[in-house]
């Protein structure tokens, strides 16, 4: 009896295990499947399709028939406006990346150093991250940096006896950059501050205590010798994420600089805005996708390059 029952119970056990495994598999695909499917349908297929389109003349069609080889890419490399857009975004990145990094780090150090109300300040600085770029851009454009005397910034100037400034429009002096940069700083500094805060809390307190025992004074000395070196990974991450975000600039530029019938957008036109005009405006999908791949290549190039210098994403050596 018992001899017979052993294989039965083993079999039952095995089938139970199989059922559990099946349930786990089903649950896995139940959760991941839709996401995966969405990723394939809405990301991978369009990317591949776009790559194919970039070698065709695809005007007002996404199923083109005229193969043009590298013509679209060459057209863009010869296009002064496209090159100018790359220069524009590079200058933007050159400013916004260090500014964001420094401000986020500064805020993180301040928030980390206080003992009471840390959660409050953390939340306060983080909240703008949850705001939409479009909403913030409109507030910046129409309320704060409105060119009329009753715009917020101009009202502040008036208190100091200054004339109102038309912030968005005149090329000289380029006040529009102040509007563009400040809105992005307000929106993203809080997020990077959280990354730095996490990094700061990873640093063992014992290191600081040991330093104090050895006679180090607080402030700059410990920051330079302990905090900043140990934040290297975080800093590298922040810089890379920032560069990628900067090269993908679109929302605030288009919402602040353009409006129906307005050509302010030519003041500072990043590549995505230019390519959007080509692909969606002029319906030239071949040229538009070719530009998107050039931009993607640039971003990938920068990411690989940083890997040589900062080694973010490389395995931590023990």
């Amino acid at each position: 009896m018992s001899v017979q029952s052993v294989p039965t119970s083993t079999a039952a056990h095995a089938s139970r295990q199989r059922r559990r495994q099946l349930r786990t598999t089903l649950a896995f695909w139940g959760f991941v499947g839709p996401l995966f499917l969405g990723l394939i349908v809405f990301t991978y297929i369009p990317v591949l399709w776009g790559f194919v389109l970039s070698f065709f003349e695809a005007k007002r069609t996404v199923t083109p028939t005229t193969f043009v080889g590298l013509e679209n890419y060459l057209t863009l490399f010869r296009d002064r406006a496209f090159i100018q857009s790359l220069i524009t975004v590079a200058l933007f990145a050159l400013f916004i990346v260090p500014a964001t990094t420094a401000l986020a780090l500064g805020l993180a150090l301040l928030v980390n150093s206080i003992t009471r109300g840390q959660t409050f300040f953390r939340s306060v600085f983080f909240i703008p991250t949850a705001c939409s770029y479009v909403v913030a851009s409109l507030v910046w454009k129409l309320n704060i940096f409105n060119g009329l005397p009753f715009g917020l910034a101009n009202m502040v100037l008036y208190q100091f006896g200054q004339d109102p400034i038309v912030w968005i429009g005149p090329p000289n002096p380029p006040w529009y950059w102040l509007v563009l940069v400040s809105v992005r700083l307000w929106l993203q500094v809080g997020f990077y501050m959280i990354l730095f805060l996490a990094g700061l809390q990873e640093i063992p307190r014992s290191l600081y205590e040991a330093a104090y025992v050895d006679g180090a004074s607080g402030g700059w000395t410990t920051f330079r010798n302990i905090t900043f070196p140990l934040l290297r990974n975080t800093t590298a991450a922040v810089v890379v994420l920032n560069i990628i975000a900067a090269f993908q600039a679109f929302d605030e530029f288009i919402n602040i600089l353009s409006g129906t019938g307005s050509s302010n957008i030519n003041l500072a036109r990043p590549p995505l805005v230019y390519l959007y005009g080509i692909a969606i405006g002029s319906q030239d999908f071949g040229l538009g996708t070719a530009g998107a791949f050039i931009l993607a290549a640039i971003i990938i190039g920068i990411t690989l390059l940083q890997n040589r210098f900062f080694a973010f994403g490389r395995e931590e050596r023990a």
């Binding site: 353009s258 307005s262 050509s263 957008i265 005009g277 405006g281």
Partner: peptide
């Protein structure tokens, strides 16, 4: 808004883009 009933294509494109984003918002 009385719509702009005359567009150069460039303005049409750029204007469109702006309002697309606003619409999304």
């Amino acid at each position: 808004k009385p719509p702009p009933l005359f567009f150069s294509s460039r303005r049409f494109a750029v204007g469109s883009a702006a309002s697309a984003a606003v619409l999304a918002a």
